[in-house]
């Protein structure tokens, strides 16, 4: 079984539209939407949630008013400023449990905390796993890992050969959590100063974790000179550029209508995407 992880560093490079189009092109596969902050992939499919399971984050501290003797030790020990006057602020508590160790009155208990939901959906292009992290929740890296684990399990059960993972933005814990054991990491970039900057950061992250990367350039004709620079950077790092997608209003219009743009056949963007998909399959 192979997993293709698609990331972009910065947002708005058209990554999700591209993943949706790959999903139309691929045969039997499962999709994993790992942008657990703001999962969007399902908006481009006819999808319905068939099952939901809670995602437990780290436990949170709770102080029993009856047992607490107001000594203030817990407040002194909490490195996150989450305790004020023997009251725990749930938003700031990171669940380290240090206050419980510090409390000599045994007044602190660590309680289960649901930090989000993992959702399983059916779409016209196959099963999909996605997640919704509760508002203002921490621990998103772990949720990403869970989504990938669930997707892998389903793929094994169904004997599917391919997992397509829509990765989160940035280079932090969520992305790091997406890179382990990925067979191929496709970095979607655009030829802007910020796009190049973020691509370089995300490529060094992939390198740092010994991943195998490929790059594709979206809206490449917005700036041919920046596109050239991206190609040079990739060449010097020995990373293949698997394709260039032109600026095409079809993509924006398809997005507005909530469908993968590849369904508008023969548009310049679709043709380019077909080529990219072929190269990726060969690499996998």
């Amino acid at each position: 079984m192979k997993e293709l992880v698609v990331i972009s560093g910065k947002g708005g490079t058209g990554k999700t539209s591209l993943v949706a189009s790959f999903s139309v092109l691929a045969g039997e596969k499962i999709m994993a939407d790992c942008d657990v902050d703001a999962s969007n992939l399902h908006l481009l499919f006819n999808s319905s949630v068939i099952r939901q399971i809670p995602f437990y984050g780290l436990k949170k501290a709770r102080i029993s008013e009856e047992l607490c003797v107001k000594c203030g030790d817990c407040e002194d020990y909490c490195h996150f400023g989450a305790i004020d006057n023997s009251f725990v602020d749930g938003l700031s508590c990171e669940g380290c449990g240090v206050c419980k160790l510090a409390c000599r009155a045994g007044a602190i208990e660590m309680v289960e905390h649901i930090a989000g939901q993992i959702e399983f959906s059916d779409t016209e292009y196959g099963p999909m796993v996605h997640a919704r992290l509760g508002v203002a929740e921490d621990n998103s890296g772990k949720l990403v890992a869970e989504v990938r684990k669930m997707a892998r399990q389903i793929a094994e059960d169904k004997n599917y050969e391919l997992i397509i993972t829509d990765g989160p933005p940035g280079i932090g814990c969520q992305v790091i959590s997406c890179l382990s054991n990925a067979d191929l990491v496709l970095v979607v970039t655009e030829p802007s100063r910020t796009g190049i900057h973020d691509m370089e950061r995300v490529l060094s992250l992939v390198e740092h974790f010994d991943g195998r990367a490929a790059v594709c350039i979206n809206k490449w004709d917005i700036s041919a000179s920046n596109t050239g620079e991206i190609e040079d950077i990739c060449y010097s790092k020995n990373i293949p550029v698997v394709g260039k997608i032109p600026y095409d209003m079809t993509v924006y219009n398809a997005l507005k209508n909530g469908i993968p743009y590849i369904r508008k056949k023969d548009s310049p963007a679709s043709t380019a995407t077909l080529g990219i998909w072929d190269s990726l399959l060969k690499m996998l």
Partner: peptide, 29 residues
């Protein structure tokens, strides 16, 4: 971007927040 810890830590304590969106289904969601 996003709604998890880095975004929350950044907005905490501000007087006002401007939210920039675009008129697509992704933007609204």
């Amino acid at each position: 971007p996003g709604t998890s810890c880095p975004a929350v830590k950044s907005v905490e304590g501000v007087d006002f927040c401007i939210l920039v969106t675009e008129p697509t289904p992704f933007g609204l969601h």
